[in-house]
Design a protein around this nucleic acid. Structure first.
Lengths: 218, 218, 218, 218
DNA sequence: GATGAATGAGCATTCATTCAT
DNA sequence: GATGAATGAATGCTCATTCAT
């Protein structure tokens, strides 16, 4: 609740009615973010979410039809915030390498801002699980965003013989898992580790890609 | 239920009692496999599982204490089956490259046998999801197996300056995501596509790794 | 249900919401009283209680966490109602004899108001049982009240050589059993029988006590 | 189980079949005695009982139709054992006083043999309960026995104006409660305390009774 | 629009009892 | 007669959702 205003919903409205409406919506979204991170999507109940606000249970349904809708709203929020960065990366990229490097870096930045140990640790709670994944609405949404973007980018390029869908999958999977690992390791991710991890990830990918393409086209 | 005999529990027993007991256990395990794949671990209820058999609800508890125990049994089954392959890979590997290549190939083989479209598609059910993950008990277990094995292997090697935990994460994430992609694309995965996809994945990784290490140790 | 208003919870509130809430709580308490009396505490289920109201099953849990909580509420109710009488007895008593006589009389009065044939008959339901006990939450609570009070009183007195714990037990046991007997005999206990039974009980006790003490302190 | 032979069922049978039949029955009865004492009649399940034997669950139903039947059998056992003592008391009694004194003493003897702290403590477990009662099948049965006997005895006497039913109730209630108190206090009840408590109880009763009758018939 | 009590379907689990072996 | 797995009714309890206030 303390971060109630962390991500505002951006709707500027003037009447008092509108203001409280917006505030309630935000209140629900923030509670949901928290609870999803702590308990996971499946395990969280609508009750858990409203318990995290000072609203009454019935009020939830004035704003969302179900927890799925909240999930979607959260996802949309993240995407909206993330897209500009991704766009800038695309605009500045002169090559596919530039683009991938930039996207991965943007992702790790985003992750270090919104991810936290609970998020990363949660997924594996029920299993014995050394596995760790970053599985909040926000992260899923951002991944999808990158995926879409990356595939589109690759499709416009002509990377001889490389299956762009697989390449995208590889990039996503690699980044996601390494990212989870990073979060889990340094809870307070600092700037430096982000740079280094992001360099590791894009280095691996890009060098691999280079060899693949050069091997493919002689 | 059609795949009732997919994975028999191997216990040969003679009395009729023993035979039906084994059959019931298998029946539950198979139903669980299916349901976990369709709904995901969190979302499936014990009732969902027994509904997938022709047993009465109480009977479930003659075999398992909870869905978690079923999960574990499934995981153990897979690991038991997968381990010999992984061991052979390790025994035959002369280098880290050999090992990674072999492990990834083994994983894709396993995936093509036990994965199916539902498995791959499930995870994203609740979201709009282009995302795909392979998240059944079996696959989680196999991943953990590979992860453990890989980290152990890497720790014995001296890969100058590479963080083995991150490298492992990268390999796992890449393989998982690409694997999910493969399953989703050709439901009836053929031998050839396995070879090609597995070559793509290990190529990407190993070449990336090579450049990374050579760059690191000039 | 006919005695729905037997023991109102006393909370006067104005809104309709508050009124129905109070009514529902009472409804549950009354149903519980009945069912406890009929089936006994152990044997009654939460469902039995709600079945005795026209509420839905879930509603129970809006008011009580468990049947134990209902039990406690019933007990508290009785105690609250009984205590003033007991206090008056204590205040007016000039001697231990006065006190015992008064307490027993108060108990029989209370019993004749809240006891009924079912109550008395219940306990022995499962057995062939000529035995009869008064074992509802209310009566247990009232007994405990008397017991505490009596022991405290006796401890302040100096009754040479008499074990106050045993004496209390004797009084309680005697009153309980004789009370059960009375209820069972005249379901509609009249004023006169109360007087006579209560005189019998305290006569027995007090005369016995007198001889005991005089025998003890020659 | 160690006391498996504490109370044998007395049936001497010769064939091997008969012997095991009898042994099984005893085994169930002994387990039941134990479990009833520990958990109380209501709370114990048939499963609890058979778990206390080395028999299979189905076997239970070859001997008893339900836990109620076991209860009855236990009760009958106790009565069978207790009756001779009571008879001797009756035969030796020259007066109502003698009889009551003897019966109460016999009861306390029996109680000190079969009662134990668990038994006495159990009843009040679910309540806040300072109250204590002795409520096993055995004790209930013995009480009923005494009650019947006592009423019969009193009916043959002519105790001017005393209601024999109430008097019996008074005796029973007093003895039961004081007995419970005794058990709870000295778990290992010794001979001496039995004598003293039994003297206290009958003293109270008999002196009370004396005054009552003398008061009644001047 | 906010409230929060009522609803009843649904879930995990236990248990008495049956019956094929 | 002994066994112990199968059965399914019953229980305590939770939860999404509705709706009178």
């Amino acid at each position: 609740m303390s971060e109630s205003a962390l991500i505002s919903n951006g709707q500027d409205a003037c009447g008092k009615r509108e203001r409280t409406k917006a505030a309630n919506r935000d209140s629900i979204l923030n509670a949901a973010r928290q609870v999803f991170a702590e308990l996971g999507y499946e395990a969280t109940t609508v009750r858990d979410i409203i318990r995290g606000t000072d609203l009454a249970s019935g009020t939830f349904y004035n704003y969302f039809k179900s927890k799925e809708e909240v999930f979607d709203a959260l996802a949309r929020q993240s995407v909206t915030e993330f897209q500009p960065y991704l766009r800038k990366v695309k605009d500045n990229a002169d090559s596919i390498e530039d683009y991938i490097e930039g996207a991965i870096h943007a992702y790790f930045m985003f992750l270090s801002t919104y991810g936290n140990k609970e998020v990363a640790a949660r997924a594996s709670a029920s299993t014995e699980g050394d596995s760790l994944r970053v599985d909040t609405p926000e992260m899923q949404a951002v991944f999808n965003e990158i995926r879409r973007d990356l595939e589109e980018y690759l499709d416009h390029q002509d990377i001889s013989g490389i299956d762009t869908e697989y390449l995208t999958a590889a990039a996503i999977g690699l980044a996601r898992e390494v990212g989870g690992c990073m979060i889990l390791r340094d809870n307070e991710t600092n700037k430096q580790s982000i740079e280094s991890v992001s360099k590791f990830a894009s280095g691996l990918l890009l060098n691999g890609l280079k060899s693949l393409t050069s091997a493919e086209t002689p």
